Amino acid sequence: MSALRIEQVTTKKVIPKTEDLVFGKHYTDHMFVMDYQEGKGWYDPRIVPYESITLDPAAMVFHYGQTVFEGLKAYRTEDNQIKLFRPDENFKRLNRSSERLSMPQINEKDVLNYLKELIKIDQDWVPAEDGYSLYIRPFVIATEPNLSLAPSRSYRLMIILSPVGSYYKEGIHPVGIHVEEAFTRAVKGGTGTAKTAGNYSAAYKAQEKATKEGYSQVLWLDGIEKKYIEEVGSMNVFFKINGEVVTPELNGSILEGITRMSIIELLKTWGVPLSERRISLDELFRAYEQGLVEEAFGTGTAAVISPIGELNWNGKKMIINNKETGEVAKQLYETLTGIQTGKVADPFHWTVNVR
């Protein structure tokens, strides 16, 4: 592990009141930065004051989109500890994303230790109130000034921190979802399994359409047949059908969510019938007509659990569980957030203490 250089601010920012927090709008006093050069590897890990960065206009990230990112959270417990939730899995996924985009691997253990030091320095920014946390955004960008169509030979890893409340203003309340059939999120062999910027900006047009129609998110179908359910918005999706929880299987275009992984492990521990398989919209609609669709919810780091109360498919509206949060979604939310904040026992050893 390379020696960490630390430069602290001389004047600290005023930390916003928790009730004024909007997701992703406020940033802490410091950030982590580390650079990479082909032939030299990663070097100069440093914690510095949060500030703007300067890049050459020809930096390859601007032209060919070589960039990957992650999202995880730190939580303050009732006894004033600060915990991370499965950060090792996030850094493993960051490396998988980097591999897909021909970007260099990081040393996962070293970067986790650097992250801990960053959080210790900015620990006052970790909210203590229920429902609030410190969102952590590691990302890697290609920095070489070169317009040649080839992987960059230099990169920068950065980690920024942001205190946040609920991702959705609705909170843990069911939202309406528009089924998207024109636009495609990802296809097998593409970059759907990588957490890269282009996957998200490519979704804006469909999200814009859904918002205009009064829906919170988009339900994505497969890019080939436009038949099989894949994700909801930027989240993995689950359905409870006739007592069984079903989630689309990982197929080369679906992002492998850390929350998805945790939910599957929890449900197996609880003995809840669970299936990871292809599920078509036709199958879901038939089950709905038979009164068998009991719950639906999205899962992800930002929202944890986002219950689905309505699906709009070409004007056919599926009202799920009377637009109320289902028992499985509620239990999963309470258990996961309980483990994250230390209120519920962690038999899986998912949480990691920062201090």
Score class of each variant (00 low, 15 high):
Ala329Glu: 02
Gly190Trp: 06
Tyr135His: 09
Thr10Arg: 14
Val111Thr: 14
Leu281Met: 14
Leu72Tyr: 08
Thr341Cys: 01
Phe238Glu: 00
Glu38Ile: 08
Ala182Cys: 10
Met158Gln: 14
Arg100Ile: 12
Gly176Tyr: 08
Gly65Val: 07
Thr269Asn: 11
Asn80Trp: 06
Met158Trp: 05
Ile241Cys: 00
Gln290Arg: 15
Lys195Leu: 01
Thr143His: 07
Thr301Glu: 02
Ser152Glu: 01
Gln8Asp: 12
Val14Ser: 10
Asn199Cys: 05
Asp88Glu: 14
Val111Ser: 10
Ile258Glu: 04
Gly342Phe: 00
His26Ala: 13
Val140His: 08
Val218Ile: 13
Leu336Lys: 04
Val111Met: 13
Gln37His: 09
Thr259His: 10
Ala202Arg: 12
Pro127Gln: 02
Glu324Ile: 01
Ile319Tyr: 09
Lys317Phe: 06
Asn312Cys: 06
Met1Val: 14
Ser97Leu: 06
Glu38Met: 08
Ile47Arg: 04
Met261Trp: 11
Asp35Met: 06
Pro16Val: 09
Ile159Ser: 03
Lys12Arg: 14
Thr325Gly: 00
Ala186Ser: 12
Asn251Val: 08
Ser102Thr: 13
Ser2Val: 11
Val175Met: 02
Met318Gln: 00
Ile53Gln: 12
Ile121Asp: 07
Leu134Phe: 00
Lys343Asp: 06
Phe183Asp: 12
Ile160Cys: 01
Val187Tyr: 05
Gly271Trp: 00
Ala197Ser: 15
Lys240Leu: 10
Asp122Met: 08
Gly309Thr: 11
Asn236Gln: 09
Ser162Thr: 13
Tyr288Thr: 07
Asn236His: 06
Gln331Tyr: 03
Glu117Val: 02
Tyr75Phe: 12
Tyr114Lys: 04
Leu157Gln: 09
Ile136Asp: 05
Ser216Tyr: 09
Lys240Val: 13
Met1Lys: 15
Tyr200Asp: 11
Asp222Asn: 12
Thr77Arg: 07
Pro145Val: 01
Ile106Val: 15
Ile229Pro: 07
Trp270Asp: 00
Leu101Thr: 05
Val293Tyr: 02
Gln37Cys: 11
Val218Asn: 10
Gly338Phe: 00
Asp282His: 11
Thr301Arg: 05
Pro273Tyr: 08
Thr335Pro: 00
Thr341Met: 01
Trp125Asp: 01
Asn90Ser: 09
Met31Trp: 14
Thr269Leu: 12
Glu244Lys: 15
Tyr27Gly: 06
Val33Ala: 13
Ala3Asp: 15
Arg46Ser: 13
Lys92Asp: 10
Lys195His: 05
Phe348Trp: 15
Ala202Ile: 06
Gln290Trp: 11
Asn321His: 15
Val14Asn: 05
Glu295Tyr: 09
Gln123His: 11
Ser275Pro: 06
Leu101Ala: 09
Thr67Trp: 04
Pro174Val: 03
Gly326Tyr: 09
Tyr132Gln: 05
Ile263His: 05
Ala303Gln: 04
Gly243Arg: 03
Ser102Pro: 07
Val33Arg: 14
Glu7Gly: 04
Asn146His: 03
Val48Gly: 04
Tyr50Ser: 07
Ile305Gly: 10
Thr211Val: 12
Asn312Ala: 04
Val272Asn: 02
Val354Met: 05
Pro273His: 07
Leu134Lys: 03
Ser275Leu: 11
Leu266Gln: 06
